Every structure is written in structure tokens, then in C-alpha cells.
Computed example of a mutant assay.
Amino acid sequence: MALRRLIFGTAAGIDGVGPLQETLKWNQPSYLTSETKSGSTIRLDRMGATEQYALYFHCQTDLVATFRELYPTELSFEGNRSIVLHVDDPVPEQALSHCVGLALTYHLRKRRPSTRSSQAE
């Protein structure tokens, strides 16, 4: 429930994301930006019979690679698809909120033209 609140809270604070659709995909709670199509789906689930759980992201995006670059020591990852957490550890809310925000705006960033200046510095 804490991750659900974090996802909805993060979405509410970002212009352009709009309301989230909460549904089940592969029998996992899933969060989609169906109205605005601004982001990539986020799913939540326990990892097998372990004391771990994860936030899953579309594996054909660069999201987890980006998260790994931003939070190499603060977060744990599985391949290119998830952020892995342990039930006994505190939830790293700041890092997760940032990652969730990046996922919820993934398509917005891909649609925007480059904002780099063409002038030499």
C-alpha cells in the first residue's frame, strides 16, 4: 500500500501525467497513464517465495538503465525490468518517487524535441 500511495502521490505532483488507471496486468497491480499516454506502465509484485518485492517496468525501455545510473547504491535491480526491495528495509521514498516520475513521463520525454542549444558555448 505504501508503494501504491507513492505512485499516486508522485503522479499527482507532475503536470501532464493526468489520472492514473489502476488495473491488473499479469495478476499484478498495475498503474497506467491511459488518458494522457505520458508514461510507461508500472507493476508491483512479490518476487516468488522470497522476502523481496519489486516495481516492474517495461523491459524494452531504458528506464531501469537510467535508474541504475542515478541510484547505483541506493537501489537494487534485476536485469532491465525491475527495482527490487526487501520487506525488512525502509522504502527509499525519494529515489523511488524520482524513478516513478521518470516512468510516468517516459513518453512525454520521448515526444519532446531536443532542448539543447545549437549555439557553441
Rank of each mutant, 00 (worst) to 15 (best):
K25A: 14
A54M: 03
R43D: 03
A49E: 13
S40P: 02
S34E: 13
S40F: 10
N80R: 08
R68V: 00
F77N: 06
L63C: 04
R4F: 00
G101N: 05
G48A: 12
S34R: 06
L6M: 04
T66H: 01
G79C: 13
D15Q: 10
A120Y: 08
S76F: 09
R111K: 07
K37F: 07
R112F: 05
S97D: 09
Q119E: 13
S97Y: 05
V17G: 01
P72K: 01
S38C: 10
D45K: 09
Q94E: 14
L6V: 01
G79E: 13
A65N: 03
C99G: 11
P19H: 05
C59E: 07
R68S: 09
E69P: 02
H107D: 10
L85C: 15
I42W: 07
D15N: 08
E93G: 01
S30E: 08
E93P: 00
M47Q: 14
K110Y: 01
F77V: 03
V84H: 11
L104P: 05
Q94Y: 10
D45E: 14
G101V: 04
R112V: 09
L32T: 06
G39D: 03
G39K: 01
S114Y: 08
Y53S: 02
A12M: 04
H107V: 11
E51S: 13
C59Y: 10
L20Q: 10
L44R: 01
V64Y: 11
M1L: 09
L70H: 02
